[in-house]
Design a protein around this nucleic acid. Structure first.
Length: 490
DNA sequence: CATGCCGGGCA
DNA sequence: TGCCCGGCATG
């Protein structure tokens, strides 16, 4: 985590320097908004901006006192602009410094729009772009379809542009800078940098179809990175999986859709909005969902513009059974395992609900953050020698429920005797339905005063007693190691 | 005293 | 991390 933080900070600061300067001076609309936005999205923009585009060619206005990034958009420059709910590619037609507005010709929509300079960002290093093409600004207004005599030229140019964009930034259709950022475009443009980081993004998990059309895909989702972190780092994890072959070349040019992951792991996007939990297959979908249902229509306010990103998270599902053992991927992706949580069997009728309730706990973590964090990761914890993690393992299941899980590993020798730790339920040792692990809810009391105290000696016979010292080899490992017996739990 | 097991050391 | 053991608590 620390590492994440630091990394993150690093980025942020980087960005701060570059994109958003000291608050205030900038010609931006409302300082307030700017601040907020800055705080929330900077990192994204940062990585995106710094890594991909501008650096190389764009013209930055002297960072003067304002510090705000001021790009002098030049006619013909290829840019991205957030329009109609998606990131569109377009060409700058005119940049009005006075109003800090930019007129952009949207390639996709074939129309011209005029928006604030801050809403427009440069597409990566545009090669030798035809300088100031001949098309004249037709109107500052939006939606002025334009098909002119120079249509031909335009077409050519557009074709070129499209090609460029295809090769450089598959993200064309992906969501706004916010999270989209790390996605492909970055991957594509910034192979040399943070390749590790990049790898963790969808490209590796999803089959990376950047073909905008495929509903499922969308490059890489914020992955653990985005949302979670902001929600308080609930997910633990940096966990960048460096598993992605970082082949610069592959990245630079239109790489054939990244190979699919061998095992069909589907990436879905889950809404993290409290009590929602909707799962959609496309990032766009989820964004839309969040925006529409939870954020309300705040499209125009900068401040919320990319907020949706914080409310969904990527989850990986195995094709076959959603419940299936979530891949080894431990941390971040709250792989579809969260659900089980909800399904946890209610505390067995007579579980010892220890006396002291802990009303206080309830108020703790926001359910949102929590629910998605802990569980996901915990559920697949496996331990061979459980004794170490064994005794009552508490995991916050929901703000107010603490689950105490414990499981015992079947000793290599006698699998027949897989014990079950349960003192409330009177199981005899033989197995218990749940194959993977045995768990039962126990409302544990908060930091037990006497936590340090030794665990009372269990009444059950332990290996030592049962097998006798002479058969020490039949003891469970824990016993052999003079640890709490795992075979005969009490 | 026998047992259970925590804490800690070692490889 | 696996393994072992000193030493303490408990019955």
């Amino acid at each position: 985590m620390a590492s994440v933080l630091s990394r993150r900070l690093g980025k942020r600061s980087l960005l701060g320097a570059r994109v958003l300067g000291p608050p205030g001076a900038a010609p931006s609309s409302e300082p307030q908004t700017e601040l907020l936005e800055g705080a929330a999205t900077q990192p994204f923009l940062a990585s995106k901006d710094t890594s991909c585009r501008e650096q190389p060619k764009e013209i930055l206005k002297a960072p003067g006192p304002s510090g705000l990034q001021q790009v002098a958009f030049q006619p013909g420059q290829k840019v991205y602009v957030w329009y109609g709910g998606q990131e569109c590619t377009g060409l700058v037609e005119q940049h009005s410094w006075a109003e800090d507005k930019v007129t952009v010709w949207l390639l996709d929509q074939k129309l011209q729009i005029c928006c604030k300079a801050e809403e427009v960002w440069l597409a990566e290093l545009q090669g030798p772009i035809p300088q100031a093409p001949a098309y004249r600004p037709v109107s500052r207004n939006i939606d002025v379809p334009k098909r002119k005599s120079d249509a031909v030229e335009m077409d050519e140019m557009m074709a070129a542009m499209v090609l460029t964009s295809l090769s450089c930034s598959p993200v064309v259709q992906s969501p706004p800078g916010a999270e989209a950022n790390f996605s492909v475009s970055r991957a594509a443009c910034d192979p040399w940098k943070e390749s590790g980081d990049v790898s963790d993004s969808g490209s590796s998990t999803t089959s990376g179809h950047w073909s905008a059309s495929s509903g499922i895909s969308t490059p890489s989702p914020p992955h653990p990175q985005a949302s979670p972190k902001y929600l308080g780092d609930a997910f633990g994890s940096p966990q960048t999986d460096n598993g992605f072959e970082t082949d610069p070349d592959a990245f630079l040019l239109d790489e054939p859709a990244p190979r699919k992951r061998k095992n069909s792991v589907k990436v879905m996007y889950k809404c993290l909005w409290p009590n929602c939990g909707k799962v959609l297959r496309s990032i766009v979908g989820i964004k839309r969902h969040v925006k529409a249902l939870h954020l309300g229509d705040t499209v125009d306010s900068d401040q919320f513009k990319r907020e949706e990103d914080f409310y969904y998270t990527e989850v990986q599902m195995k094709e076959e059974a959603a419940a299936g053992a979530p891949t080894a991927d431990p941390a971040p992706t709250p792989s579809m395992t969260s659900p089980p949580l909800a399904l946890l069997p209610p505390p067995p009728p007579k579980t010892q609900s220890s006396g002291p309730e802990h009303p206080g706990l309830e108020s703790y973590l926001p359910s949102g953050a929590l629910s998605k964090s802990a569980p996901g990761s915990f559920w697949h914890i496996q331990a061979d020698h459980a004794y170490q993690a064994l005794p009552s393992f508490q995991i916050p299941v929901s703000p107010h429920i603490y689950t105490s899980i414990s499981w015992a590993a079947a000793p290599s020798t006698a699998s027949s005797l897989s014990p079950v730790r349960s003192r409330s339920l009177s199981f005899s040792e033989p197995q218990q339905p749940p194959p993977a692990m045995k768990s039962h809810l126990i409302v544990t009391s908060p930091p037990r005063a006497q936590s340090s105290a030794r665990k009372a000696r269990g009444e059950a016979k332990k290996c030592r007693k049962v097998y006798g010292i002479e058969h020490r080899d039949q003891w469970c490992t824990a016993c052999r190691w003079k640890k709490a017996c795992q075979r005969f739990l009490d």
